[in-house]
């Protein structure tokens, strides 16, 4: 498997927008429509697919570390205390069979719903797109067993996306990690405003940051 960054001709530190631009240029160049009567059509198609896969791979990689509900690397060695029913749920989840998992979960009596029940329910619901219930159940699992790191991790994962969205909304002009986002906590997000403030503070202290303001 070739290095996807090399395929797109970008550095691994490139921003998302740069990746998208590179993808665009290359996919335009090798688009099958431009090779209709061309003997190189086969090669172009292969290259086109390669570019597509490289783009998808990079996007996937940059995403993970965020909320991927991929259960296969979320689970611990299940406790031997786990009931048969919950083990079945666990197996469904590992196979990505969320509907079956939910059915199995709902078959368990309300009085027997432990923290782990809520944990599994959160994962199953998340897998099906029921993110509200998923978050509520993850919170419930943490509530019932506050020292369980797994449960806390899941809750963090589920809440992370919302935090990221809020950051993008309120955190300044840059959606691509440029100015305003992930920067120091003191800053208005507006460059001019920041310079004005910095200059004012500087002058207060007897200096002068910018002589023209």
């Amino acid at each position: 498997m070739k290095d996807p960054y090399k395929v797109l001709g970008v550095s691994p530190n490139a921003s998302n927008d740069e990746i998208k631009k590179a993808y665009r240029e290359l996919s335009r160049k090798y688009h099958p429509d431009s090779y209709v009567d061309n003997p190189l059509a086969g090669l172009a198609e292969e290259k086109f697919k390669e570019i597509q896969e490289a783009y998808e791979q990079i996007m996937r990689e940059r995403e993970s570390g965020s909320s991927s509900y991929n259960y296969s690397y979320g689970w611990s060695n299940t406790s031997t205390e786990q009931s048969q029913e919950l083990t079945a749920v666990h197996n469904y989840l590992a196979a990505g069979r969320y509907y079956e998992a939910l059915n199995a979960l709902n078959a368990i009596n309300i009085n027997e719903r432990t923290a782990r029940w809520y944990y599994y329910s959160a994962i199953a619901n998340a897998g099906l797109g029921n993110n509200i219930v998923a978050t509520e159940h993850a919170a419930q699992a943490v509530n019932m067993d506050p020292y369980n790191a797994e449960y806390q991790n899941l809750l963090n994962q589920l809440e992370w996306q919302s935090r990221r969205y809020q950051e993008r909304r309120y955190g300044g002009t840059g959606y691509d990690g440029r100015y305003g986002r992930n920067n120091s906590s003191c800053g208005t997000g507006n460059l001019c405003c920041d310079i004005l403030c910095a200059d004012a503070i500087c002058e207060c202290m007897g200096g002068d940051l910018c002589s023209c303001i």
């Binding site: 998208k20 631009k21 996306q161």
Partner: peptide, 29 residues
């Protein structure tokens, strides 16, 4: 917010460049 978070996350994965400002204006504001 949860809904827009997932929606925008999916959007940012797409190689959209044209009119990106309009699209982001809608989705985030």
């Amino acid at each position: 917010t949860m809904m827009m978070a997932e929606c925008s996350r999916e959007f940012e994965k797409l190689p959209c460049l044209v009119d990106i400002d309009i699209l982001r204006n809608i989705l985030y504001e």
